[in-house]
Design a binder for these strands. Structure first.
Lengths: 185, 185
DNA sequence: CATGTCATGTAAGTGGTTACATGATTTT
DNA sequence: AAAATCATGTAACCACTTACATGACATG
C-alpha cells in the first residue's frame, strides 16, 4: 500500500474529515516532512472506500456545498496499526540546493547567493511557524494523549530547521568574501 | 529537464565516467541528500547522448569489460551552468518515521522503540562517514577549487545528522518511561 | 568453483505532479 | 462585481523503483 493511504488513515483516526480538509492539514502540520497533492488524495479516498478502510459519513450535511466527510472503519484502524508496527521504509530526501552547492564553483556568485537567501527565508519561516505551533500545543496542556508525540514531531522540525539555518549562515560566507574584496577596491 | 540530467552533467564536468561509476559516486558522496537508480541513469545517459549534452569517449579501452565512458560536451556545460543559475525548485522531503511518530500513541511501544533505534543507527553511520570524508578532504588541502563547496555540503550533512541524533535521543525517552515503570515492579 | 563486483541495460508497474474542469460560497 | 476560498474530481504526463536479464572478470 502506498503511503498516502496511511497518512489519510492516521488523520481520519483523529476525526472525520473531507478530502479538502485532509490536504489542508497535511499542508499545515506536516509541511516540513510530508506532502500530498489533490491528484493523489481524491483517487486514494475513492479506492479506500472501495476497499473498506474508510466510509462516507455524510454528504453535505450542514451546508449546501458539495462535500463528502470520510470516517475510518474498524478495518482501517487495524490496517493503520499494522503499518505503524512495520519497519520504516527508506526515507526520501532530495535537496536540489545541495547539488547546486556541490557544483557551485561553476555558478555565478550572485545566483548562489540568491539560492541561499531563498533557502534561508523559507526555513526561517518554517521555524517561526513551528515555534508558534509548539507554543499553542504546550498551552493546551496534555489533555490529549497524543500530545507528547505532536510535540516530538515539532521538536524534530525545530531542530532540523535550526541546523539548516546554522548551515546557511556559514555557507553564505563562502560567497560574501568576494563582496568584501569588491568593497575594498 | 529532470534533475537526473543535471546530476550527471555535474559529475561529468569533473571527469569522464561510466554509468556504473556515476551511480557509485551518487551513492557514496550524495547519499544523505540524493539518490538515483540504474533504471534512471542508463536511459537518461542514452537520451543525453542523443541531445548532444554528453558523448561517448570510448568503449572498453583498457579492459575487455563492456563499458562506455561518457564525457560532457560544451553544450552540456552550458546547460549545466544555466541550470545552476536558475532558482532552486521545491525540495522533496518525506520522512515516514515522523508520520509514525505523529500517530505513535496508536502503536506498540516496542515497535516505536525499534523504529527509533533503526533511525539512530542509520544516521549515526551517516555522520561517521561524513566525519571521515571531511577529514579526508581537509587533508588534501585546497588545491582543488571546488574544495570549499564540497566541505560545505559535508558540513550540511553533519549538522543535519547531528540534529537527527539529538532529536532521536529525546524521542526515545517518550517510550522508555514505561520500561522504568516495568523495572520498578 | 562459487561468490562478489564490474558493467549495461529493459520492462512493467507505481507513485506523483500539473493542468484542467466545474461550481458554490464568502469576503473584499 | 470580482476575487478568494471551499470543494471535488479527471487526464495526461513524468519520474522513479523494482525486478529481470546478461555476462565478464576477480577474489577467496
Amino acid at each position: 500500500m502506498k503511503k498516502t493511504t496511511y497518512v489519510i488513515l492516521g488523520l481520519l483516526s483523529e476525526a472525520p474529515m473531507t478530502g479538502y480538509q485532509i490536504k489542508q492539514v497535511i499542508d499545515i502540520r506536516f509541511k516540513f516532512f510530508w506532502r500530498e497533492s489533490y491528484g493523489q488524495i481524491f483517487p486514494t479516498l475513492k479506492a479506500m472506500v472501495e476497499s473498506g478502510d474508510i466510509n462516507i459519513l455524510d454528504i453535505a450535511p450542514q451546508n449546501n456545498r458539495a462535500q463528502k466527510t470520510y470516517a475510518i472503519t474498524p478495518q482501517g484502524t487495524a490496517n493503520l496499526k499494522t503499518w505503524l508496527s512495520m519497519p520504516v521504509e527508506t526515507e526520501m530526501v532530495r535537496l536540489e540546493l545541495l547539488l547546486k552547492m556541490y557544483f557551485g564553483n561553476l555558478a555565478d556568485r550572485e545566483a548562489m547567493q540568491s539560492h541561499l537567501a531563498a533557502f534561508q527565508a523559507a526555513h526561517q519561516s518554517d521555524l517561526d511557524q513551528l515555534n508558534a505551533f509548539s507554543d499553542e500545543v504546550t498551552k493546551l496542556l496534555d489533555q490529549d494523549e497524543n500530545h507528547p508525540m505532536v510535540l516530538s514531531v515539532i521538536d524534530f522540525g525545530q531542530k532540523v530547521n535550526r541546523a539548516y539555518l546554522a548551515w546557511v549562515e556559514a555557507a553564505q560566507k563562502l560567497f560574501s568574501e568576494g563582496d568584501e574584496a569588491d568593497a575594498a577596491k
